[in-house]
Every structure is written in C-alpha cells, then in structure tokens.
Simulated assay, not measured.
Amino acid sequence: MTLLNKTDEYIYKRLIWKAGQYNLPSDFSFFYNNLPLKMREYLSGQIITSPNEIPVLFFTKPSQEWTLLSTRQLFGYNNSHVYSILLEDIAHLTSKKFADENAKFTSGLKKSDWHELIITCKDGQILLFHARKGSDLFALWNILLMAVRFYR
C-alpha cells in the first residue's frame, strides 16, 4: 500500500490500534476524541492542521508540557510555545536522556526516568517532545516510529 492509498482515516485507525498495544490511554495519555470538549477547543486553537488531518493521541506530564500526535504532524508544547513537525520531515528520534549521556548506556541510566524525545528534522532542526516518564514515553516513541514509516 503506497502513501497515496493511506488516507488519514487509515492512519488514524492504525495509530489507535498501536496505542492499544501499549495499554493507552493512561493517566497522562488520552485519545484526542475522548478529551473534554474544553481541552479539545483549547488544542484546536493552538494547532494548525490540514483539512483531512485527524488529531489522534495527546500526551502530557505533571509539569504541563504536552505532545499531540495527528495523522500528519507532531505538535509539542514546552510551557512557553507550541511547535510542530510534519511526520514526513522526521529524520531521527531518540530520548533526551539517552542523548545527554552521549549515547552510552551506564548503570545510572534508567529507562523508566525518560520523559522527553528528541526529534531531528530532515533540515537538521532539533525539537523536544514530552510525555510522562516511562511507559507513556515509550508508547509515544514506538507509535511515532510506525507513523513515520507511513511517510517513507
């Protein structure tokens, strides 16, 4: 199936399916359609989507940063501004904690403490995306890996 055959509805269903494999939603991750109306209205005012694009998963953490995955983009908020990247423009994903340790695993590097993803864009720009530490971050990471493959 080529990207031309992968409609937003198809990608939406695949993302929901993949989220189920990671026991989402959780206390800090939500299906966009299940968010309270007030929160969806807030998010709609913060993001710009294309006509057929569907917001799918919302991740947050106690410090109030958030990430929203749609069928075409990834949106982030770092407590000061909202930013986004098209899924097709993602070149590389890694954990901020992993990158901070110079990509070397040490005994002090616990995966359960990871709560930020570093996304490197094809143009070299680096963006930071947030989720609650541990399983929510790894769910986001793995779901995002699948989503990016749709555009390669």
Rank of each mutant, 00 (worst) to 15 (best):
N79A: 08
N79S: 06
S80R: 06
S80K: 03
H81E: 08
H81N: 08
V82Q: 00
V82E: 04
Y83I: 05
Y83V: 08
S84L: 04
S84N: 10
S84Q: 01
I85P: 04
L86E: 00
L86P: 04
L86V: 02
L87K: 01
E88S: 00
I90K: 01
I90M: 04
I90P: 01
I90N: 00
A91N: 08
A91T: 03
H92I: 06
L93Y: 05
L93K: 06
T94V: 12
S95F: 10
S95M: 11
S95W: 04
K96V: 15
K97R: 15
K97C: 11
K97Y: 04
K97W: 13
F98I: 12
A99G: 12
D100A: 14
D100G: 14
E101L: 11
E101W: 09
N102Q: 13
N102A: 07
N102C: 12
A103T: 10
A103P: 01
K104P: 01
F105C: 11
F105I: 15
T106N: 06
T106D: 07
T106H: 05
T106L: 06
S107I: 05
G108A: 10
G108P: 00
L109R: 02
L109D: 09
L109V: 11
L109G: 07
L109M: 14
K110Y: 10
K110D: 09
K111M: 11
S112T: 13
D113W: 13
W114E: 11
W114M: 11
H115K: 15
H115Q: 15
H115A: 14
E116G: 10
L117Q: 10
I118M: 13
I118Y: 02
I118D: 05
I119T: 12
T120E: 08
T120S: 07
T120I: 14
T120Q: 03
C121R: 09
C121P: 06
K122D: 03
D123M: 03
G124K: 06
G124W: 02
Q125L: 01
I126Y: 00
I126N: 01
L127Q: 06
L128C: 09
L128S: 12
L128G: 04
